[in-house]
Design a binder for these strands. Structure first.
Lengths: 338, 338
DNA sequence: CTGAAAGCGCTTACAG
DNA sequence: CTGAAAGCGCTTACAG
């Protein structure tokens, strides 16, 4: 009646040793040659695979980290995933990814809850920061790092872009080219990037003494190609800009398309600048000027913050900021070549 | 000396009941009003969160399914992820995603191994099917569904596109438009889609009696924008096609770019057709004709196959095939409008 | 170096 | 309805 169906027990039985010895051999701990060999043979014959949940329960760690991003469809998140994975893998963690989609907070808190237990820590890049989400962030027992800005006074590691400076680079560049009617094609304003990038636009325009009437700003329903196209068509219809700063590259592709439909020549009649500097910026025709908001560096930094936090749960929280840079291409300068 | 640090024990102590009662209440099993109330209050006060690994160890299920795709950066995989997630969520499973990147089999087998234990089943869409990977697929104890074609005789559920018919749709369409020098811009040929789509191209060209010299076929190093651009430039240099069938939409965007650089007008001088019919096909200028290989349907089907397999481990394996369709846009027809 | 035993935090028959 | 107890499959002091 003994419980010998246990797989570890099975291997032990086949090898004629105790389960402790099996465990040790399989974990590379010291064992005699004969035991080692018998265990390895038995394990191979039986096709033994250790049960990860049992191990985790015992040792209190899963060696898994979860990354939750708003939209796996946005290439900028893809490069962030790879950056996070690289850093974590080097420290022996595996990365599991969850896409929270576009749904409101419940999607996110679901995720937060569910991940408890299967991961040792979490990196969260929320598109919208709602009160319920903040509650979960504050109350998290799991080590947590946020990518994006957070209200003051929340004692959780985070890293963010300097959106203000980033959008400023785009606006300054366009103004340098003699553009004056610089419009802003934003994503949803109730999102973290939507809010930050709009603030950056308004600040920069004010600093330069340029007008920012309401009809020069438009809010796409989503940070996607399709939404960018629709919003850009509205924008081109309601004002007469000589330049558009777009809140990300996907929106900018939509703007390029809208301009093409209206027969506007780019950059002569209309200059366009994107944001995030994703791969696609080099492949559009014309190529797209874009502000790199340091997505890869933010991701790497987030991973390192998390590793440090795992190593020392009591260290003070940090909130580094990553600096942006602008890459100028054809969409905003007449003589930029092919 | 008793082990009462256990969180479940803690709640039980606070509520003045046994851990069994706590477990029951928290799992919605019948309990008296008074016990229910005390447990819920205690759990709330303590901010109790059940340990998922312990629960999984006991019940033998994690309620998690893993989806491993070759490249999270390809939009077609993103739509597949969403489709899988939708189906699984309705059945109470959570989806965790792993990107296997571009590395060879070891990446994949790593993943296979590591997922054991934290998930109840797995959907795998391998870019390359190597012998070691096949070994793991055959030897998997975990319920497994493959998206893509598999050698005959492997008794694992799978679903695939009809690439032959799909590429055939593109070639037939171009031939209907009077194109004769139809080139093929493929991704790496040692990949599952690379092999299948090339076969489809050759079959269709032969059926139509069109020439397929070696210089009319080119193999990009990757299924990406950047690789497509490089390969398309080679192609345009080494032959003089009047049409290019591209193995996916990303490659097609690269081809559009290469054509623009050479000043070729599309579709007049060169027609281009992509594959996968992703969002981007509608946003390029000109818009991109593309073959939908049924990615979403493949994903949904895979999820359902897995659910059925979980419900009945002994049912015979199935291998459905999804039919393709072609959407014609500006890049392949002169009069397609704006 | 090796084995017997305790215990990780849960769930679930089994009695009462 | 409720509690005491066994056990999921591992790891790890503790003796020997």
């Amino acid at each position: 009646m003994a419980s010998r169906r246990s797989t570890l027990h099975l291997v032990a039985e086949h090898a004629g040793v105790s389960i402790a010895s099996v465990s040790r051999v399989l974990n590379g701990l010291p064992a005699s040659e004969s035991v080692t060999e018998r265990v390895q043979r038995a394990a191979a014959e039986l096709g033994y695979v250790p049960d990860a949940t049992a191990r985790s329960l015992k040792v209190g760690r899963t060696e898994q980290i979860s990354l939750a991003v708003a939209d796996v469809g946005n290439p900028v998140y893809v490069s962030m995933m790879h950056a996070v994975a690289d850093v974590l893998t080097q420290s022996g963690y595996r990365l599991v990814i969850s896409s929270t989609g576009n749904d409101p907070a419940d999607q996110i808190d679901l995720l937060e809850n569910l991940n408890r237990g299967y991961v040792d820590g979490m990196i969260l890049s929320p598109l919208r920061v709602t009160e319920p989400l903040l509650d979960r962030i504050r109350g998290s027992r799991l080590p947590l790092v946020i990518i994006g800005s957070l209200p003051d006074g929340i004692d959780v590691d985070s890293v963010r872009a300097d959106s203000r400076e980033g959008v400023g680079l785009a606006v300054d560049h366009l103004a340098d080219q003699g553009r004056r009617r610089i419009a802003f094609l934003n994503g949803p304003i109730d999102t973290v990037p939507g809010t930050a990038r709009l603030a950056g636009y308004l600040t920069a325009m004010e600093r330069l003494g340029l007008a920012t009437s309401g009809d020069m700003q438009v809010e796409a329903s989503d940070f996607t190609f399709a939404a960018g196209l629709v919003a850009a068509e509205t924008l081109l219809q309601q004002c007469n800009p000589d330049a558009i700063v777009c809140s990300n590259d996907l929106l900018a592709v939509g703007a390029l398309k809208a301009a093409a439909r209206r027969g506007l020549s780019i950059p002569e009649e209309l200059a366009i600048v994107g944001m995030d500097d994703t791969d696609i910026a080099q492949l559009t025709t014309p190529t797209l000027s874009s502000v790199d908001l340091g997505a890869v560096r933010r991701a790497q930094t987030a991973a390192r913050l998390l590793l440090d936090r795992l190593a020392d749960p009591d260290r003070p929280a940090r909130h580094p900021i990553v600096r942006p840079s602008l890459t100028v291409r054809e969409s905003s300068t007449a003589g930029a070549g092919s």
